[in-house]
Design a protein around this nucleic acid. Structure first.
Lengths: 367, 367
DNA sequence: CTGAAAGCGCTAACAG
DNA sequence: CTGTTAGCGCTTTCAG
């Protein structure tokens, strides 16, 4: 039961190699400007002693942590119903790993956690943050933005960029939800469908709102009765589909805000004896493989590369961290209330530095 | 664009409160043994300055990090096809948060990453690790066990406990896969079914192997033709179901190793014109809501409380960290090869300190 | 009960 | 190119 394995220090390595601590430090950090023979000696000593640098000591002086926080704020359990975040995380993790950065995961449950997260971020434990801001009314993004930590958002945040002047531009990565939705609806139209319905996601999320906008871009002011609001879940999809069918029995196509919703809708369609795609053509959004490929019939859908979004978020953040002055400025000088006008998103404003990834329509058999 | 927000230090707080750094430190760390008036003064100073302790400096001296790593090793993308890890993570996160610990997520892709993870863990960046060891032949758990970091495994690791003497007992948390499988099969039998088939998961995972064992516990040496190996995916479930049906057209029940597999099997059953549960009764495993509730018909299945498993893992680890000597001992003195005999699981051996959570049968309409 | 002093292990000027 | 010298911000004996 021997305990306290005393890890070797720089000092020990220096002694063993017969050089100074500074030299060892240089070698350990890339070895620039150290003559070859010495580098070799030090390397060997490091090897023999099994030396591993103490990150805490290093951070104390460099003020870098080589770690970034990933904040996922989702009160409902919905997050876990689809692999969305998992894929995103995977992309983030890959990119971070490639740059020797660590991923600190902050999951929040409701408001109580907000203060905790804000404190953590403000505490300078990490060099930056990647945050998923799902809801329009979520105060968390604001808090974070005020914490003075370089941040990249996942998904277009739902606020206007009024505070940009104070905290720097809001940078985010998003899919082209609006464009993808347009493609989906146009595809349906190209099939000769005219009474194209839409089941939305929760409209307090920009992704859902943007998809609805895309639908409208193509449909103009078609019958509003063809639109039903829902919540991205299969059960919600069923409900909405039923409502739609009761209201507009003659509809001949459906654009569902995501694949899960489409799956629910498909069940209702079958249950009502409607054939897909003959009677009603259906297209989804996401191309979540386990869902889209397994529905009956397989789903035509708009694919977004979720993993790539994650990777890109990380890349953007890392780039910012490398550049000096990449911070979001100093902490708020004072407690300034929510002064900015949280205007609704009305059009593609490029105020913040947003990167929008393209989507592609994947044709299967449902449309 | 002012940068470098100079965060206040202990020193600053001390000055402001008119006390010494030591006193401030005491207050910040609980305030024991400091007289009330002083505590109050210090608290106020902390508040006014917005002081947040520098974790790096603290770790440097305490050698604690209040952070634990969660290692998820899954080469395939399968991990992300179901919400399993997400739920587990959620449970872990909750428990960790409740004890002011941070969660560092380490995702690995293939062997190349193993060294990186081992190095990270050995580097003393975290106080402990929670690792998910899915495959029998995965070398990672061994590496980790050798890194000298207190560890708790998720799922029963697939090795015998030969190395226990050197590194301490292997502690893990698992569901009662075997018992749950027994319940499932017994339920089917109680329905009067006699030709009960089983579609397994990948048998190099202990969870799948244990479920098969449970099936056998009840079925004795029934017709081996009633067992088909698969891989936990819907597509695999379809394939296996077809094979089973071709081989044993008379089967009247199915126990699928997980819900996803059951969903695939259900589709094949319908496609062959077999009614569920009239012709073939089906029970799954997991009770993954988005799956089990959405199948047609809704799935009778064995529920395991995944989130609770995560919470428990974290709790176990934290408890171990609190006790002195809770480590796994010093790093391996030398490179000792994989000497232990990785014996197959043949019975509930309590060699390692394993905690096995109960499962419950959830009746819906498929059986 | 409180303050003074001594580092924790490392990097970053600055000399040589 | 290499070594010396100062700390980074905090906790922790040890006196008082």
């Amino acid at each position: 039961m021997t305990d306290t394995a005393p890890r070797p220090t720089l000092e020990a390595v220096a002694a063993r190699a017969g050089v100074s601590r500074a030299t060892v430090s240089r070698v350990v950090n890339g070895g620039d400007g150290v003559r070859e023979p010495l580098v070799e000696r030090v390397r060997r000593a490091v090897e023999e002693l099994g030396y591993v640098p103490n990150q805490a000591a290093r951070s104390l002086v460099t003020r870098r942590h080589d770690a970034v926080a990933v904040v996922i704020a989702e009160p409902e359990a919905r997050v876990f119903a689809d692999p969305f975040f998992a894929l995103q995380l995977r992309g983030i993790s890959k990119e971070l790993t490639a740059h020797d950065n660590q991923l600190v995961l902050l999951l929040t449950e409701g408001r109580d956690d907000h203060a905790r997260v804000a404190r953590y971020l403000a505490g300078g434990h990490v060099d930056g943050a990647l945050v998923f801001s799902l809801h329009l009314d979520d105060p968390l993004p604001g808090l974070i933005q005020g914490a003075g930590v370089p941040t990249v958002f996942g998904g277009r945040p739902g606020w206007s960029d009024g505070r940009a002047a104070a905290t720097g531009p809001t940078v985010y990565v998003d899919s082209d939800n609006r464009g993808g939705a347009r493609d989906a609806v146009r595809h349906l139209a190209s099939l000769g469908r005219t009474r194209i319905a839409h089941i939305t996601g929760p409209l307090d999320q920009t992704s859902a709102a943007d998809r609805l906008d895309g639908y409208r871009d193509v449909m103009g002011d078609a019958d509003p009765g063809l639109v039903a609001e829902s919540d991205f879940t299969p059960a919600g999809g069923e409900r909405a589909m039923r409502a739609l069918l009761d209201r507009r029995p003659g509809l001949d196509a459906l654009f569902a805000a995501n694949d899960l919703t489409a799956a629910g809708a498909l069940r209702v369609l079958r249950e009502r004896g409607l054939r897909v795609p003959e009677d009603v053509a259906v297209v989804g959004f996401d191309d979540m493989l386990p869902v889209a490929e397994q529905t009956d019939p397989p789903l035509t859908t708009v694919r977004q590369d979720i993993e790539e979004m994650g990777r890109l978020m990380a890349r953007l953040l890392l780039r910012r961290l490398d550049r000096p002055g990449g911070g979001t400025g100093p902490r708020a000088t004072d407690e300034d209330g929510p002064g900015g006008t949280p205007a609704p998103p009305d059009g593609p404003d490029e105020a913040g530095a947003g990167v929008v990834l393209p989507t592609t329509l994947v044709r299967r058999t449902s449309a």
